[in-house]
Simulated assay, not measured.
Amino acid sequence: MNKLKYIGISIVTLIVLGIAFYGYMGGFQQVTVSRESFGPAEVYYTTHKGAYENIGASWENFQKDWESVGITDCDSLAIYLDSPDTEPEKLRSVLGCRLEGLSPEQKKQIEGKFKTFYMPKMNGLGASFPFKNFLSYFLAPTKVYPKFQEILVAETAETSVAIEIYGGSSKTVDKIGFFMPVGVSREVFKSLEEAFQ
């Protein structure tokens, strides 16, 4: 009987800890969606094709590449070209760092090693979610994108891509930004699609 009691206490403790951790991660936080603009922005980038859970390896390789030319910080973002219901092996993601803030010499080195992409100013839906640790990259989209989808469906609006803004790699980041352009032609991102061919 005592053994069952201890098992019961352990299970309850784990559940309470799990709920507390979920709350700490922002799981119970309400996501507020606002009308925002994003850009203009110019980025240098690399591509990742495949499941999102494997994107970390692509990022590590990208970071080694930009560090190899003397860049010490990346104001990072990612552009997701396909809807989440796409077959995992066909998902296309673009990992980028903003050129803004780099010296002319650094830009020259970057442009000799990476492809660059210019994003015009775009209007759309924006939101943010607290960043606590690497698990936030997985939890945040499950909270934000359903809210975006509710609005897109209600307004019969169309989006072309999803953009996530992570911030500086050498600075303390406290939130992940999300943006979905509305009424922006897919043609704007054509060169990114061509980078996968």
Rank of each mutant, 00 (worst) to 15 (best):
G50W: 05
I19H: 02
V69Q: 06
N61K: 15
T47Y: 12
E36V: 08
G183N: 08
F129L: 07
Y137K: 09
M122Q: 13
F138E: 14
A195C: 01
R35V: 04
I19W: 01
I163Q: 10
T46V: 08
S37D: 11
K121F: 11
Y6C: 09
L77M: 15
D174Q: 14
K143T: 03
F114W: 14
V43A: 03
K107M: 07
Q30P: 12
S58V: 04
A195I: 02
C97G: 08
Y6P: 05
P130D: 00
S128P: 08
S83K: 15
K3S: 10
F114T: 05
L91Y: 06
L125G: 08
G101L: 05
V94E: 01
N2R: 14
L152Q: 04
I7S: 02
A154Y: 02
G50K: 05
P120W: 11
V12G: 11
G168H: 14
Y45H: 10
K108Q: 05
K175F: 09
G168K: 13
V188S: 00
G101N: 03
K108H: 00
S169G: 12
T13I: 13
L135N: 06
G18K: 07
I9A: 15
R92A: 00
A162L: 13
V69L: 15
Q63N: 11
G70I: 03
A162S: 13
E150Y: 06
